[in-house]
Amino acid sequence: MTTDIIKTILLVIVIIAAAAVGLIKGDFFSADQKTSQTKEYDETMAFPSDRYPETAKHIKDAINEGHSEVCTIDRDGAEERREQSLKDVPSKKGYDRDEWPMAMCKEGGEGASVEYISPADNRGAGSWVGHRLTDYPDGTKVLFTIQ
């Protein structure tokens, strides 16, 4: 009888400890659950922060602020969205204006996050993204994560 009680207590302790560890690490709210919560997407893109740190930080900050982490490709609307997102952000010598969500994404446009980024970082990042997405047709939903 006493052994059963001890076993039960130990089991409860193990369950509570596991739950606490899960909460601390954020496992309960990341990965699978987040994926199913957020959205539908067709492809994933792990953006390399070691290669393009400034652009990666901007993407991460913008997503944390509530901007979409999914980009629905829509090439035709890019020009108009870029005009909307940059209208109140003047160009600055020696910097590029990086938008998140990008202008090519349906989620971009007015209200997009815009950050001044060094040209080497931003243009390399653009080339990297273009290389990976160029064959995807309009309408493809791409989930971005920061690696």
């Binding site: 870029r82 090519m104 080497a120 931003n122 390399g124 290389h131």
Partner: peptide
């Protein structure tokens, strides 16, 4: 976009450029 355009070989994909 991204202050660039690429001239590349037919039937290939534009490579990643190190700016």
């Amino acid at each position: 976009s991204y202050h660039q355009f690429t001239v590349f070989q037919k039937d290939s994909t534009p490579p990643v450029m190190d700016w």
